[in-house]
Nucleic acid binder design. Structure first.
Lengths: 147, 147
DNA sequence: ATGGCTGCAAAAGTTTTGCACTTCT
DNA sequence: AGAAGTGCAAAACTTTTGCAGCCAT
């Protein structure tokens, strides 16, 4: 089975050096997460994957999301829902603002989060491995609708 | 059925003025969340509730957690797990730092989060209703174990 | 060749829902 | 009385796992 040879070179290297194999399914999932609109949940990844590889299984999607998460290539997000969302690990750290009206998700950078991370690490004696800032609210359109 | 008359006056008022009834089950759940060690998940609330009211149902726990959340008396937390946790809405806003080794949860205050909230609200045109900062890492004990 | 990976099916865990009955106001 | 809430059981949904065969290295 021939896999798209896109520019996933660095990801492939990361996979291999960690003893992971590069299967067509894994490459596909990585590509979907990478260029997807971001913030996909497992089922959305599954549906998109099936468009190109119709007999891929949902288990495989879950297993690979876990693997890629462990590898640090994918980030798992915990929004105000009963399932998880996933995005490609971004170059620049950013956080999320979710509109409770229309579900729109806006990303924002945050120079404060690193400062905060160091402060808390020192105060609490932790080695901090991750910071997630999650805001909820109403976007300008939804604010108008409400009033 | 007589309900414990503890000092839940303000909560009761909030309930009533929103058209909610104060049932013994609801009072019990509110009390458990209020004085519990914090960060309980639905099942833990259920188990604690059954110690005092053995035939309360899990559905009732879920329905009340949703109701109390809607009312703003209870906050739902989304840790790195496949289920939710709940805590009483605290007087002072605080956030959470979770140890990936032993699961310990440390709370921390954060004067920056209000500043950040205003900044993002202005930049993005949102009305921001909530901010959740969630850090993960390893506590001092678990750091020693690792090395 | 061999150990990781896959698909399938089944299980496990969490949360929601329909319904008849009860209880708060 | 009437509307909201409850318990029970079943359903819905998300995620994990066992296993036999497959495939990247």
């Amino acid at each position: 089975m021939v896999t798209k040879e896109k520019s996933l070179l660095s990801e492939r290297k990361a996979l291999r050096s960690a003893g992971f194999r590069l299967t067509s399914q894994r490459a596909l999932i990585l590509e979907i997460i990478g260029q997807g609109s971001g913030h996909l949940d497992a089922d959305e990844v599954y549906r998109l994957a099936r468009e190109r590889q119709p007999n891929i299984s949902l288990s495989t999607v879950y297993r690979n999301l876990q693997a890629l998460k462990k590898l640090g290539l994918v980030k798992e997000l915990h929004f105000d829902e009963s399932h998880h969302h996933y995005e490609a690990k971004p170059a620049a750290e950013h956080h999320h603002l979710v509109c409770l009206g229309c579900g729109k998700i806006v990303e924002f950078g945050c120079q404060l989060s690193n400062k905060l991370r160091q402060e808390i690490a020192r105060k609490k004696g932790f080695e901090v491995t991750g910071v997630e800032v999650h805001m909820t609210g109403y976007c300008s359109k939804c604010r108008k609708k409400k009033s």
